[in-house]
Design a protein around this nucleic acid. Sequence first.
DNA 1: GTGACCACCTGGCCGC
DNA 2: TGCGGCCAGGTGGTCA
Length: 275
Amino acid sequence: MPELPEVETVRNTLKTLIVGKEIRDIDVYYEKMIRNREVDEFKKALIGKKIIDIDRYGKYLIFNFEGTALISHLRMEGKYFFKDLDEKKEKHEHVIFYFTDGKTLRYNDTRKFGTMDLYDINDVYDKSPVSKIGYEPFEKEMTGKYLMDKLSKKSIAIKSALLDQTIIAGLGNIYVDEVLFLSKIHPTLKANSFELADYKRLVKNSVKVLNKAVKLGGTTIRSYTSSLGVTGRFQNELFVHTKQGDSCLVCNTEILKTKVNGRGTYYCPSCQKEL
DNA sequence: GTGACCACCTGGCCGC
DNA sequence: TGCGGCCAGGTGGTCA
């Protein structure tokens, strides 16, 4: 499932393929995917425009169509594929962008959770869904002090807090498990129960995990692949996520799986003490 | 304001 | 083999 590293991989792949191309037509097969516009309005806003750039913030992809921003969230299983015009439409292709040069960009989403919104490019960081999310771990504003302030009144589990995109942008279920393991923090402990040094460690390890995952093209678990079926390699670097029953690479204790707020959660009971 | 829960979706897996 | 039930999970909405 695409988290920040996977979305960054998609962005980098797509940039090399579609920037500069002009939209000739668009087919929308699943209208609910387009959230803040009627389909006709969505098409009208984009047809005839060129893709100037593709940006990313958190898990959102931001396509710049000459001043109109298409904000795309891949949610669980969203993918983009770059194909020739004559290739047959697949079952889960819900939006197809036709370019003037005969190529197509196809949004494929098995579970139809993905979303697309249109905003003026100047409103992306003020009015769109992107405006509601917190800093990414890489940003200078994301410090241990910031995280401690944000979580000071949160009595929810630290795992749930780190999944909250309004607090910290980009982490999903896989990477939160890895960050908590590296930080030696048990996932069910209360978010406001730590000291400054712990929050600093969480920020530091978030950067470490995400940077490494971006470098390796993300994580391929279950169905995730980026455009053109590119698969990531970070799954080979995972310490705990999906490792239930395996031995901890640090202390040899068996990795356990539990649920935190309904999310499958993997941890080492020895390295990550419940206290 | 906060936290818990549910809906959205479909494919894969398991037990019968 | 076929069927039903459960699980996976990011986000937004609802409710207490």
